[in-house]
Nucleic acid binder design. Structure first.
Length: 646
RNA sequence: GCUGGUGUGGCGCAGGGGUAGCGCAAUUGAUUCGUAAUCAAUAGGCCAUGGGUUCAAAUCCCAUCACCAGCUCCA
């Protein structure tokens, strides 16, 4: 007797029963349900229930259901490619957040031009509506089966499965693929799909292994949903900082200057200046001491810090790094060893701690040529850097302070809601990348883990193995960009190794020399990256307090240029960033131009305004405009700027 | 670094072995206007750079550089 719990009903069966039949015994199963959860495991509708179970059904609206749906779509893609290119070798093809992909070993590599033909073949397969049938084979038979089909990658995958693993295959028509499943009942359910791109991807994500050809696609149960999704991607593309940042004149790049070296135009420079002044003042308020340290140092200096052993590939070296008889320098990729010299300047007492050092620090990192992206990944960047030198008993309180500062900064910018946390740890199986002993790492990670559990709660952060800095574990605050890709915006790190390397000590209460803890942290991250994320968040229409130009004054005709200029001067004298368009173009044209620039406030002045010392305000945000006295308008702007209103 | 794609006036594009084109922007006139585009004229390009093939290359081939998507790596 098998007991099945479904939708609150308790069913019982004499013999094993499929999920579908079990559910259908209660009521007809709606076609929207495409998979099920049995005792917490996602399975297909034809899964055989052989023991007591609790069932819930999954539709495309469930993330797990969508994964099943798109995974089947990836099998359809694989069948289509095998049909059109019989010599292509299958590898893997999972569902991902917004779609699916499949990696093929195929020569020559597929290009975007090949996708329409593959899509056409996929349509045939979907129309044929073949059932997906699961079967299993013992290990050796499974290997022989895939060897016979000349699928070496599949053979490799099977060999790497644990001894006790069930090796399952899915068959649709003539196409068979090694796959854990689950899948849709048949291919016909895939009513709408699109292949979106094809690119290279390393076998098993390992850059020493062969580069395969990855085809990305997405699939939906109906055409409208697909259309909506593609339109949403189009919209996101319009917010891409790399597009609007250039169009709106925030930054540019120049071939002859070099990769990853953006030129900040006046608007971008202004925003970064505003951010920098804000952060420096805020840090001063929070007890930070300002430092200014060299942008480069000698080879021997970086040998002490460990950068020479662990980070040389990432550094710009001036001189021959291997000729020990000649002087050799490197541009700094990190601020730590330089800022430590401030502490080392004289003998320190425990009374001086915590010592909070802050610096607007420009760094240079020799990223591989393919890594650069707009303002997100560059080779020279400036961060709100800081190091806190601490007694052990101060660690928790100061770590909390760093997190609070980061939160204040990101909340003010409006980015906090897009952030997630990652506890970045070392990889105990890859110790050569890191300084220090397993004991030191265990201690640092234990201390940090406790802090994070306490401050964030274990459920609110993920763990990233092999994501640590070479000298210690990190809390990385990850911010999603407009395409949903994550990048680190703020990092808070605990370092117990570099302090020792540089011989940092303080005289403790009991007169003993003690090595301090150090927190590395940024308060707002890198200015270039933050600007990029802000441009995307606000689609170029930055909040008033960060707008490079806050007001554009437009006279209805040149007869009112004098008054327009007076308005401009009044606002400028109050510290506002304001332009007056006194040219001879028509008013409508000027308004249009100011709107394209995403100016927060457009002020129109004519005879009425001149006579009453007022302004007609057209605001970017609806409902904020109208006619008001010049004095009131000025006060309104100043208060909005002070509030850092979004 | 790897795979693929793309480089034509400031921007967006068309063209394509034999006088380099369009729209927007710019400049100069005219226009003086009340909340999303006034009219006209003018100017602006070694078709990314360097090699080749050819009687002839922006166009075909090779290399380099830059940009884009993704992989790998990272803030």
């Amino acid at each position: 007797m098998i007991k099945v719990l479904f939708n609150g009903a308790e069913l019982s069966f004499d013999a094993p029963v499929t999920v579908y039949d079990a559910c259908a015994s209660v009521a007809p199963v709606s076609r929207e349900f495409i998979a099920a959860k049995v005792n917490g495991n996602v399975v297909g509708m034809t899964h055989l229930i052989e023991a007591d179970a609790e069932i819930s059904l999954l539709s495309f609206a469930d993330a797990e259901g969508a994964k099943v749906f798109r995974h089947t779509a990836s099998h359809v893609l694989a069948e289509a490619v095998k049909t059109l290119y019989p010599t292509a070798k299958l590898t893997i093809g999972p569902a991902i957040d917004e779609g699916f992909y499949y990696d093929f070993d195929i020569t020559p590599a597929l290009t975007p031009d090949d996708l329409p033909a593959i899509e056409a073949e996929m349509k045939k397969i979907i129309k044929a509506n073949a059932k997906l049938e699961r079967f299993t084979l013992p290990r050796e038979e499974a290997i022989a089966f895939m060897e016979e089909r000349d699928e070496p990658y599949k053979v490799e995958l099977i060999r790497d499965l644990p001894e006790d693993a069930v090796i399952s295959f899915y068959k649709q028509g003539e196409f068979v693929d090694l796959c854990a499943g689950p899948h849709l009942f048949s291919t016909g359910a895939i009513k709408a799909f699109k292949l979106t791109s094809c690119t290279g991807a390393y076998w098993r994500g390992d850059s020493t292994k062969k580069m395969l050809c990855r085809v990305y696609g997405t699939a939906f149960p109906n055409k409208d949903a697909l259309k909506a999704h593609l339109e949403q991607i189009e919209e996101a593309r319009k917010r891409d900082h790399n597009k609007i940042g250039r169009e709106l004149g925030f930054f540019t790049t120049v071939d002859t200057v070099g990769q990853g070296l953006p030129i900040m135009l006046p608007k971008g420079s202004r925003v970064i200046q505003l951010l920098q002044r804000w952060i420096e003042d805020e840090e001063q308020r929070r007890g930070y001491l300002l430092t200014k340290t060299p942008l480069m140092g000698k080879r021997e200096f970086f040998k002490i810090s460990g950068h020479w052993d662990h980070y040389l590939d990432g550094m710009f070296v001036i001189g021959d790094p291997y000729d020990e008889t000649k002087e050799c320098f490197a541009l700094r990729p990190m601020t730590c060893p330089f800022q430590y010299q401030v502490f080392l300047n004289k003998k320190r007492s425990y009374r001086e701690l915590p010592m909070r050092l802050g610096e607007t620090s420009t760094l240079f990192r020799n990223e591989d040529s393919g890594e650069m992206h707009g303002l997100i990944r560059v080779r020279q960047f400036t961060i709100s850097e800081g190091h806190l030198v601490l007694r052990p008993d101060q660690l928790a309180e100061e770590f909390k302070g760093c997190l609070e500062l980061a939160r204040y900064c990101l909340e003010t910018l409006g980015l906090w809601e897009d952030c997630t946390f990652r506890f970045s740890q070392w990889d105990p199986n890859n110790t050569s990348k890191y300084e220090g002993t397993p004991e030191q790492w265990d201690e640092a990670q234990a201390v940090m883990g406790e802090l994070l559990d306490d401050l964030l709660g274990r459920e609110n952060y993920t763990i990233g193995i092999d994501e640590a800095a070479f000298y210690g574990p990190k809390l990385d605050i990850q911010c999603k960009n407009v395409f949903g890709k994550e990048d680190t915006i703020v990092t808070i790190q605990i370092d117990m190794l570099l302090a020792k390397k540089f011989g940092m000590e303080y005289v403790d209460r009991d007169n003993s020399m003690t090595t301090p803890y150090i927190i590395h942290r940024t308060s707002m991250g890198c200015y270039e990256r933050t600007l990029a994320l802000l441009l995307e968040k606000y689609a170029g229409a930055l909040p008033l307090w960060l707008s490079p130009n806050q007001v554009t004054v437009i006279p209805v005709s040149t007869a009112f240029n004098d008054y327009a200029d007076k308005v401009r001067q009044t606002l400028a004298d109050a510290g506002l960033r304001v332009e007056a368009d006194l040219g001879t173009d028509t008013m409508k044209y000027k308004i249009r131009a100011a709107q394209l620039e995403k100016t927060p406030y457009i002020v129109i002045v004519g005879e009425n305004e001149m006579n009453s010392e007022s302004v007609s305000v057209r605001a970017r945000v609806e409902g904020e405009g109208g006619v008001m006295s010049l004095c009131d308008f000025k006060a309104k702007l100043l208060s909005e700027v002070a509030e850092k209103k979004r």
